[in-house]
Amino acid sequence: TEVDLHLGDITIKLKDVSEEIVKRAKELFKNGWSAEFVKKWIEEAVK
């Protein structure tokens, strides 16, 4: 499945990412993480 994760003005296309990771990524962004950091976190999380 593909998900578009909207973080501010940046959209990250996610492939084969669990709902849990998407939820967590949104929380991290809301908590002040930059979109770049969230993207890196996701990449690490799906390895």
Rank of each mutant, 00 (worst) to 15 (best):
T1A: 10
T1I: 12
E2Y: 14
E2S: 12
E2C: 11
E2T: 14
V3Y: 12
V3T: 10
V3R: 07
V3S: 07
D4K: 07
D4S: 12
D4H: 15
D4Q: 14
D4G: 05
D4T: 14
L5K: 02
L5V: 07
L5D: 02
H6D: 09
L7H: 03
G8H: 04
G8A: 04
G8F: 03
D9V: 09
D9W: 04
D9R: 09
D9E: 11
T11C: 08
T11L: 09
T11K: 05
T11W: 05
L14E: 01
L14R: 01
K15I: 13
K15S: 10
K15W: 14
D16V: 05
D16W: 12
D16T: 04
D16R: 06
D16L: 05
V17D: 01
V17H: 03
V17F: 04
S18W: 07
S18N: 12
S18E: 06
S18M: 06
E19T: 10
E20Q: 09
E20G: 08
E20I: 08
I21G: 00
I21Q: 03
I21C: 04
I21A: 02
V22N: 01
K23Q: 13
K23R: 12
K23H: 10
R24T: 09
A25E: 00
A25M: 03
A25P: 00
A25L: 04
K26W: 15
K26H: 12
E27C: 13
E27W: 15
E27S: 07
E27Q: 14
E27G: 03
L28N: 01
L28R: 01
L28V: 01
L28W: 05
L28H: 04
F29S: 02
F29Q: 01
F29E: 01
K30P: 01
K30M: 14
N31S: 13
N31Y: 11
G32Q: 01
G32N: 03
W33F: 12
W33N: 08
W33Y: 14
W33H: 14
S34I: 05
S34H: 05
S34M: 05
S34A: 08
A35S: 07
E36H: 07
F37H: 11
F37C: 07
F37K: 14
F37Y: 15
V38A: 01
V38F: 02
V38W: 02
V38H: 00
V38Y: 01
K39P: 00
K39T: 10
K40Y: 12
K40T: 11
W41C: 01
W41Q: 00
W41E: 00
W41V: 01
I42M: 05
I42P: 00
E43G: 06
E44Y: 15
E44M: 11
A45H: 10
A45G: 03
V46K: 07
V46Y: 06
K47G: 11
K47I: 11
K47F: 07
